[in-house]
Design a protein around this nucleic acid. Structure first.
Lengths: 357, 357
DNA sequence: CCTCCCATCCAAAACGATTTGGATAGTACA
DNA sequence: TGTACTATCCAAATCGTTTTGGATGGGAGG
């Protein structure tokens, strides 16, 4: 189909301009051109201006590999998604990557991305990128309570920051979100609405943030002197499908819970679906809430009560922190805790009538 | 908070093993080690085995920058998201990036990612990565009818493939999805259900795929001898909010449409919300359908009728095609058209009663 | 014994930038 | 007139690979 495609031929590809070409054109040494472009003050300002202008109009851009080899820095940061390919559609990720991307390009860094499920492939990926000096540092996500990545990178003395803390080391540079107090606020809100049987659909407690949120749930109940009931706690898998399955079972319990907290928005959205299929009106018969503050939750029906964390902004900060670390700029705080914000919407408001059908 | 953080010090960071170190340990030349590892047959097999084993146990990995400089190839492909940071949460993207990521790492390529809104910043980004030889090729997404990127890369003779074709060149390597016939199928389905006033919420027709889908809508109506009514066509912006706004207006028209097609799933989900807020039962009072086949649509309430395109698989193929192109492997087809598949769900089935409330 | 041919190895030259450690010429000052 | 200093420039080394173009020695064949 579609006619003849032009064949790409490396030999015909325009050769990029090298610093040598600029030097030759101006009858200057390579050294001077290099130093002029780098802004050193041992080159006459007239010369500097001329060099900059000429380099610009010749379209000269330093070849990355050469510079990198000489300077032994890549100006690149690495991000390895700890998940396997096809089941990877958490809206969280694209927000986060956008935050990182904006900050890195602002500081003229690049972002190298890979996907590897936790385990052997993940280890290989980190080994490769550290040993080949492919990146200057890593951003870690979905930190785990016992996190191989953190001990490895620390041992290698390789810069990294993470979204979410870990218990692997006493401290390591990261941006954390206080999931515990976030869920505590949420529980308090549900208690205010009169709920007493509140369920929690979690996920693998290997993930730090899951443990944090579960803790908030427990403390919240405790403070209201409500006994913790293990039968009301389920383990999902952070997906919508996981939330759906878990909620289905919870709903058929008796006595069934009057409120369900999903460890993230996707889980909660799955639970909403299960409830609606079971003929329940969410917000009236059953309250459901999530955590994340994704757009999907905002536009759900009914709109989802959730605990909002500024994912885009966290992406920006975590990469700013990493670049500071790489460049040894002591300035920034290396250990910040963001307090997420409760957003109450219809899915937990029984006072507001649902639209008549 | 958090105690004393260990300060990273470049001087104390373990020096990576160089090929020279391996050579010295084995009392061989650097050349021989290099050739042994590369699998040339001018090194004795006993020597080769020894080299490989030693290199492995010393943890030797070639430094990427040096290799890249010498070979003048990066084994990296570039992906620049043509969108601006914060409003960037289409689930489409994460699926797509996962497909690309899996294929590139299978062929031991890396993936360099950036985010730049169409316009000047985008041009700068492409210039930089081509001139600095930062990547070996590009994957283009959201191709536009008149696409600067395609003419630029073609002019520079720089390898690229795209998801979605463009009219900028007669042909260029890409994976296309036949959005026209996809929407035509959808229209036919709606006609079968008895609909006659079918609306379409699109987006900027600058985007090729939007035009394709709109064309399918028009042809579908034409074949059923239904006059095209411009009042039933709206322009959204591919987001949920855009779909919501457009649908709100459409619903209050009189006579109002009995079915709405969203150019993508997000638009359709926005429309569902607008309909529900307006007191309509989606599937009964108003049929709504989308395009993409995202999980979000599958789990919506009611589940969304849509036209499914295998985004993960397309990501894989488009990057396989690019790598073939870079390596001059003539093998693969450079111009493939995938026919998407109609998935009918409750949002367009008025026969099935909605759950009683 | 001599020649030729393999099989195996290696020294040195790239690749394209940055950085080190001067060189050169003009100026100010004694 | 010398000397010291400054402003401006540059040759050469360097980063760690891969690749080019031999070198070397032993065995086969005459």
């Amino acid at each position: 189909m579609g006619g003849i495609l032009r064949i790409l031929n490396k030999d015909t590809r325009a050769l990029p301009v090298r610093i040598r070409d600029v030097a030759k054109k101006l009858d200057l040494s390579v050294t001077t051109v290099s130093r002029a472009l780098a802004g050193y003050d041992d080159v006459a300002s007239a010369t500097r201006d001329l060099v900059i202008e000429t380099a610009d109009e010749m379209g000269y851009v330093p070849q990355h590999a050469a510079r990198q080899l000489r300077r032994q820095r890549t100006e690149t940061i690495g991000l390895i998604f700890p998940t396997t390919g096809s089941r990877f559609s958490d809206p969280f990720f694209s927000e986060f990557i956008a935050g990182i991307g904006d900050e890195t390009s602002r500081r003229s860094y690049d972002l190298l991305v890979s996907v590897a499920p936790p385990g052997e492939a993940e280890e290989r990926a980190y080994h490769l990128w550290t040993n080949s000096r492919r990146v200057d540092g890593f951003i870690l996500i979905r930190t785990r309570v016992d996190d191989w990545r953190i001990s490895y990178l620390t041992k290698e003395n390789f810069p990294f920051t993470s979204f979410g803390r870990s218990k692997t080391l006493e401290t390591s540079p990261h941006i954390g979100v206080d999931g515990c107090s976030g869920v505590k606020d949420l529980v308090k809100h549900l208690l205010d609405q009169g709920h007493r049987r509140i369920a929690f659909i979690g996920a693998s407690e290997e993930l730090t943030f899951v443990g944090d949120r579960l803790e908030g749930y427990q403390i919240g109940l405790e403070e209201a002197h409500i006994a913790y009931d293990p039968d009301l706690v389920f383990e999902g898998d952070l997906t919508r499908a996981g939330g759906y399955e878990a909620a289905k079972i919870l709903i058929e319990r008796s006595p069934s819970p009057t409120a369900i907290i999903g460890v993230n928005d996707l889980t909660a959205l799955g639970a909403i679906r299960a409830a609606q299929e079971g003929g329940l009106i969410v917000g009236k018969d059953l309250a459901i809430a999530g955590f994340d503050g994704t757009v999907a939750g905002e536009h759900a029906h009914p709109a989802l009560t959730t605990v909002y964390q500024p994912v885009y902004e966290i992406g920006r900060q975590v990469s700013a922190m990493l670049i500071d670390l790489i460049e040894n700029q002591a300035g920034s705080e290396l250990d910040s805790l963001i307090r997420p914000r409760l957003i109450v919407r219809d899915s937990t408001l029984n006072s507001k009538p649902v639209p008549a059908d």
